[in-house]
Design a protein around this nucleic acid. Structure first.
Length: 470
RNA sequence: GCCCCUGUGGCGCAGUCCGGUUAGCGCAGUGGACUUUUAAUCCAUUGGUCCUGGGUUCGAAUCCCAGCGGGGGCACCA
């Protein structure tokens, strides 16, 4: 078919979903007298001499095409269409004798030819590599795949609305950071030619959002991509989506309330219940969620009481006894964190706010108001995975400088994920940062949870893969 | 980075363990039959560097080694 025969625009008047909603109840073998125009891909075709059936798939699903040779113009050409061709069809809505809702093909036009053969019409694609590399085909032949991304879009939209209803303002902060900060991770580096300046793709928007809190935006959030130059796994993609928000005058307990209410709201909107199934097991997302301190969870799990006062040798021994690798550079706080992560975290199923992280491993969190050496920080752990990280933000610039310098020291000692001093951020703090509660949620993992999906690649449209060789 | 699994026409699979003619099957494609099908059916038929490169052997899709792609796990990701 010459390209010139393809129309430049086309105007469908209905989708398969609308037709099913409007006409599903009509009797078998009847015609409605209603003429509609639909468009999509021809996915199945059953030609039987002077009568042909087709299955058209559009964004809402599938609908049958009914094409009698006496009615359908250029009937022979219609029968020659390839599976996968995009077509537009106009005709009467009807139901066949066997009860299949159909559109009678009274006019039709090709909107795009499929020059490549489509995957097996029944088995679809089973090769994960093709599904990820050629998502444009996966979306046609793997219905669950399409559904997950529709759900993702809906969840993100619900989050925005929920936050806006609570007077949070969405902002956009730089992705090019001269100093990577706000998290402990290795960054991607890039270069701006005109400025002859090295930049890093952001590993977190945190420090810019807190600058905005200092700037007087009391409730801000950013929903955007962050980039971490780390390994790839079923839970890690080098670029992923993060929600961060900052609320002036709030502390970490306010943020806990916000998180549990938001997640319960999303579950209810999506599944109609706060009880969901993940990986074949039930999970209760109703608020309030359990709150437990890291050291209490460790004691509960392994029966050993640890604290920052515990002798280092005893802490190291406890770690080794539980198969936790330790390095000489680790202080007591890092040892406790390691112990928690290796022995407790993976077994937490229902949501838990794990609270009170050691200061040593929390360079941006405010000192705990009662527990020396700890911070007012929590992670929300669901299905054994970190879903959110939050704290009462550190607001004392002198303390922040000391923490940065401690980080810089760790970097010198070889920790290439340690932070570096950000003088401008310190300057913003010196002008005054009010008490603030901050939160980061990994959106991809949240989608995985709500969509009951086990790998992050199934919630990212184009997951990072090694480039294909052609 | 380490370990395990995996790679067969466009797609879905068998054959590999235990080496043995021209590597099979289904879908798609091509030619034919068919006016109520539903993964339509029936007849015929085209299409393959068995991921790549070495090696063992009279003989390799099959065994061995290396590499490449993919998947999973570990490590990393506070």
């Amino acid at each position: 078919m010459p390209e010139t025969a393809i129309p430049y625009r086309f105007e469908p008047t209905a989708t398969s979903g609308q037709l099913r909603a409007d006409f599903d109840s009509i009797d078998d073998g009847t015609e409605t007298g209603k003429t509609v125009t639909i468009a999509g891909r021809l996915m199945l075709r059953r030609v039987q001499g002077k009568l042909a059936f087709g299955t058209l798939q559009d964004s809402a699903g599938r609908i049958q095409l009914f094409a009698p040779g006496k009615v359908t113009p250029d009937f022979a050409d219609f029968c020659e269409l390839s599976l996968g061709d995009w077509i537009g069809v106009t005709g009467e809505v009807m139901k066949t004798r066997k009860g299949e809702l159909s559109v009678k093909v009274e006019q039709w036009t090709v909107l795009a030819k499929a020059q490549r053969p489509f995957p097996d019409k029944f088995h679809g694609l089973s090769d994960a590599e093709i599904r990820y590399r050629q998502r444009y085909m996966d979306l046609w032949v793997t219905p669950e795949s399409r559904e997950v991304f529709v759900l993702r879009s809906k969840i993100v939209s619900l989050i925005r609305r929920w936050l806006e209803d609570r007077d949070f303002m969405e902002v956009e902060t730089p992705i090019f950071h001269p100093i990577p900060g706000g998290a402990a991770a290795r960054p991607f580096a890039t270069h701006h030619n005109a400025l002859d300046q090295e930049f890093f793709l952001r590993i977190a928007p945190e420090l810019y959002l807190k600058r905005l809190t200092a700037g007087g935006f009391e409730r801000v959030f950013e929903l955007g991509r962050v980039f971490r130059n780390e390994g790839i796994s079923t839970r890690h993609n080098p670029e992923f989506t993060m929600l961060e928000l900052y609320q002036a005058y709030a502390d970490y307990t306010d943020i806990m309330t916000l998180v549990e209410e938001l997640i319960a709201y999303l579950a209810t909107e999506i599944h109609g219940s706060t009880t969901i199934t993940y990986d074949g097991k039930e999970m209760d997302l109703s608020s309030p969620w359990r709150r437990a301190s890291m050291v209490d969870l460790i004691e509960e799990k392994i029966g050993v009481s640890v604290s920052l006062e515990t002798e280092m040798d005893d802490l190291r021994k406890t770690c080794r006894d539980h198969g936790v690798e330790v390095k000489d550079s680790y202080g007591p706080g890092k040892l406790i964190l390691e112990l928690y992560e290796k022995t407790v975290e993976g077994d937490l199923w229902n949501p838990v706010f794990v609270t009170d992280y050691p200061k040593e491993v929390s360079p941006l969190s405010r000192d705990h108001r009662e527990l020396p050496g700890f911070t007012e920080r929590f992670e929300a752990v669901v299905a054994g995975r970190e879903l959110a990280n939050a704290f009462s933000e550190l607001i004392d610039p002198d303390e922040q400088r000391a923490r940065f310098e401690d980080q810089a020291k760790q970097k010198e000692e070889g920790d290439d994920e340690a932070m570096v001093v950000d003088e401008d951020y310190l300057r913003a703090m010196e002008y005054g940062l009010p008490p603030t509660g901050g939160l980061g949620i990994g959106i991809d993992r949240l989608i995985m949870l709500l969509a009951d999906v086990q790998t992050i690649r199934d919630v990212v449209l184009f997951p990072t893969l090694r480039p294909e060789q052609f």
